[in-house]
Amino acid sequence: MTKNGGTLSFGSDTPSDLTFANPPGLNGRFEMKRWQQAGVTGKQFLEAATITNAKLFNLDNSIGSVQVSKRADLLILGKNPLINIDAFDSIQTVISAGKVIPRESLAANR
């Protein structure tokens, strides 16, 4: 929830039409940078990209927050994302449905 009461839902529209300039994953990261430039706070972004989206699509029983009985979709970050959205550049480990995956092992051209 933003200060004036509006609801933001995070979505990147990856890819739009036949452009090569909306690359998977990275396009979402770029969208996060635009949000930061527009003055969105770390907390507002985190809400929009987790619990708000989960509730909008009726998925909040299984995802959207770190709570018991939810799916283990988790990120381990080196920095605090509430202070700066760029903390998502410090992802160390991605946990996807319980699978623990070191971030760099997911990169192309390793």
Partner: peptide, 27 residues
């Protein structure tokens, strides 16, 4: 498996609620 999280932060995984997953971008 034990992961030492000292000094680190744990968030929910992010949800991108607007994607198009078929095909390869640009093709």
């Amino acid at each position: 498996q034990v992961i030492n999280g000292t000094g680190q932060f744990l968030t929910p995984g992010l949800i991108d609620a607007h994607t198009h997953l078929s095909g390869v971008p640009g093709m």
